[in-house]
Amino acid sequence: MRQVLDVIPVIDVARGEVVRALKGERSGYKPIETPLSATSSPADVARGLAQIFPFRKLYLADLDGIEGRGRNTHVVPMLSQALPRAEIWIDAGTGSRSAARAVLAAPVATLVVGTESIETVRVWEEIVAEAPGRTVLSLDFRHGEFMGPEAMLADPSLWPSRVIVMTLDRVGANEGPDIERLQSIVARAHGRRVYAAGGVRDRRDLDDIRAIGVSGALIASALHSGKISADDLKEIAGR
């Protein structure tokens, strides 16, 4: 039996609206236009995603939080209502233990900490100590460069049980996943679950990353375009 791949839809929110992410160039993100939803409201988009597949996880990139404009705290209850059985992974630019505690106050929340938001390893250790089992580390890359303290990439002992490999310049770019980097992280992860983010275009890409030991994928564009279908999800996600 082939390994089940955990497919996690991504919702990027800026100023209360879902936006279409492209290559990590956040200043140029526009409100999303998608056949899954009549509006760019987070709740409407989440309900549209729920019509495709009963996703058990949803990834929220709170771009206002990441860029220091304040968190979209009202969005989490909306998403939870639209996908009542889903665990919501939240990246809100968390860079301190107090900020982590605020995100984790929502019972459905799993905290995602991007290395681009971490100043030092010590800060990371303080954050992850708040709730190790509910914290995911995102190893962030742009144009081949690692974003964050180098020790976070060099020392896998710092990684929690779930790790995202986020290739920002491949997000929405239709370029395919960064297979070489994913292979390198999987080889060093020592049994941790590794998730691909950025570049997944279609079912073939899902099969390719599963074949190298990746446990899951964060996806947006391919779901909205229909290049990954409900039938694909049923087959590859095993439910």
Score class of each variant (00 low, 15 high):
34 T>N: 06
48 G>E: 05
34 T>K: 08
52 I>L: 15
43 A>G: 00
49 L>Y: 13
25 E>C: 01
49 L>F: 09
27 S>H: 07
43 A>N: 00
32 I>E: 05
36 L>N: 10
45 V>W: 01
25 E>W: 00
35 P>C: 08
28 G>I: 06
27 S>P: 00
25 E>P: 00
36 L>A: 11
39 T>D: 11
46 A>G: 06
46 A>T: 08
51 Q>M: 08
41 S>H: 10
42 P>E: 05
47 R>H: 09
27 S>E: 13
43 A>F: 05
22 L>V: 15
37 S>I: 04
52 I>T: 06
26 R>M: 03
52 I>W: 01
46 A>K: 04
40 S>Q: 05
23 K>W: 00
48 G>P: 09
27 S>A: 15
43 A>Y: 04
46 A>D: 01
50 A>C: 01
40 S>L: 02
31 P>W: 11
31 P>I: 09
42 P>L: 10
36 L>Q: 10
22 L>C: 03
21 A>T: 05
41 S>Q: 12
43 A>W: 00
47 R>T: 09
32 I>C: 01
35 P>N: 07
45 V>P: 09
29 Y>T: 04
29 Y>I: 05
41 S>P: 03
52 I>M: 15
33 E>G: 03
36 L>D: 07
45 V>Q: 09
25 E>I: 14
52 I>D: 00
45 V>H: 07
45 V>E: 07
27 S>Q: 14
29 Y>M: 04
39 T>R: 10
42 P>R: 11
32 I>G: 01
50 A>Q: 11
42 P>D: 11
